[in-house]
Design a protein around this nucleic acid. Sequence first.
DNA 1: AAGAACTATGCAATCGATTGCAAATATTTC
DNA 2: GAAATATTTGCAATCGATTGCATAGTTCTT
Lengths: 340, 340
Amino acid sequence: MIKNSTMKLADIAKLANVSESTVSRALSNNKLINKKTRERIQAIAQEYGFKVNASARNLRLQKTNTIAVIVLLDPNSGQSISDPFLLEILGTIADELTKYNFDLLLCTSKTNANDWHRYYITSRRADGLIVIGQGEHDQRVEALASENAPFVVWGAQPNHQKYVTVGSDNRKGGYLATKHLIQQGCKQIVFLGDIHHNEIEMRWKGYQDALEEAGIPLEKNLQISTDFTSNDGYSKIRDLFLMNQYKIDGIFAVSDAIAIGAMKFLLDKDIKIPDEIAVIGFDDIALSHYSSPALSTVKQNISAGGKLLVDLLLKKLNNQPITSQLLDVELVVRQSTAKS
Amino acid sequence: MIKNSTMKLADIAKLANVSESTVSRALSNNKLINKKTRERIQAIAQEYGFKVNASARNLRLQKTNTIAVIVLLDPNSGQSISDPFLLEILGTIADELTKYNFDLLLCTSKTNANDWHRYYITSRRADGLIVIGQGEHDQRVEALASENAPFVVWGAQPNHQKYVTVGSDNRKGGYLATKHLIQQGCKQIVFLGDIHHNEIEMRWKGYQDALEEAGIPLEKNLQISTDFTSNDGYSKIRDLFLMNQYKIDGIFAVSDAIAIGAMKFLLDKDIKIPDEIAVIGFDDIALSHYSSPALSTVKQNISAGGKLLVDLLLKKLNNQPITSQLLDVELVVRQSTAKS
DNA sequence: AAGAACTATGCAATCGATTGCAAATATTTC
DNA sequence: GAAATATTTGCAATCGATTGCATAGTTCTT
């Protein structure tokens, strides 16, 4: 007769004719308890489907074995989780946390509280935080740092060293992408992305590095801010063509989703990719391989990133010192830049 | 002087010169407490950044205000979250739960325990469960039902009524997609998807309905099982062409991701879409609009689905009766089926 | 002015698990 | 066989918030 919901340590204790403390120790396999007793109790617990009450345990132990993952979204676009990149990294984090027996509390930026420290740490809902998502300089992250919360951030390293980040070498990525376009003969390259975002700013610097190296003058009007959606990639390129001011021959979009939107417009206009305009993205999401033409891109090492985020945070919780990590990126050349 | 972490009700009580119970009541704005006192206490709590300890509260109240969302993944492919569709619905659920002040515990199928009831409900980590992801007949879901757990499932309604589901009218969707292909003149239509999955089985039935209506004989070899990835969509169509046995003129893929993979192969082979082979997908993910050619598809109402899942589950937690819901689907015609 | 009827606050038990310390039992030593 | 030591187990306090019931303080009635 299994009666799950009401079972507590005391019930098992009664059944086994021992004290609660013995049951508690037996279930955690504490060697203080005689092996036979231990096994007997474990068997009983198993039989009755007993599981320790997490709230009680957390209260007593003053920790939760839970990490809150905060997915920052563009507050303007008001959209839900959608950038495939965010989702891939979320998946990696979930798997990695599982490995360490941690639970994952997911929270999108729409969450009630803006005061993450209070909501998650002070109120003991989670032991630590991981913040992901392309963010502009975010006040809330700064606040976390000054409150000395245990957290790590996906993204670019800010100038100060107030908190630990894990992120790709965005400047190198921007450089690689742009250099590649230049090598393909492009001279008028649109930079499609919002340089007010930390990470994108670095890619923008890499873009400039490559132009400078090639002796191509920087044309600031070729930088066009975009949301992280195919939708906006499409319409921003459309707008550019409506203005009809620049004769461009290359596009560096700061995400694959944006690039795919931009390509769509070019194809709608019967502009040849890559011969008339070459296009390169960033991220290397699963679908970029399957776009037509296949999208060249700068690959971010998502799984390494997710793992690092988790590993660093757990170290931090363990009071070990941690430092920000820069992940290497890799140029992936496919059809969208491979001029014949 | 703000000292977050160590603050408890008792500390606020001391500061305000009242008892803990008064503080507790004041913070929940209980009218038993004099308005002035209430406001004074609230101000103090505010000032010191006090937040109720969730573990203690949960323990006392015997509930968690947390819902666990279980994302089922293909155990074979062993991949992380990746189907864009899953992620979109996850986002909707997150937003909806936020609205009701519930937290979301995310768990992928790799989670330690397979016994979700024990892990989440018995151990009081969550008050209820939402299960999403294309699943075959899953033992674990059946188990939940027999243990009388509060949960709802995204997907097709099983024959028995042991648990409540929310899902699209897959049969109608399959019918609409296939009928549309037939109207475009297709006669040899590949069904690209694994009919052992509940939902896909219904789409398969819809496919048959449309064929029958049009008087086209069913060719079972045109049904090809696929993982839910572009990758597999690509390779399964490639394999089909290698066999070189059928002269097909249409493909109905059971997800947009699969369809995009399939289209990629056709394009690589310089097969004209839709004129030689028309392609239609299922889901209407964000990117389907931006593929080339733009992908025709059957739109699932994701946001309605996410909301319904949450609303039904919360009703269930509230002991209100709930029943399974079927969501209407909609044919979205784009370039990939629009023959000239 | 004394009892009735509120209003506002506090006491103390409770939710369930963990753990330092003490106690009881078993084993070894001389 | 008594003392010393090792092995098992139990007692009771603790984590922090909530709430039924009791009590102290006010206001109202007649």
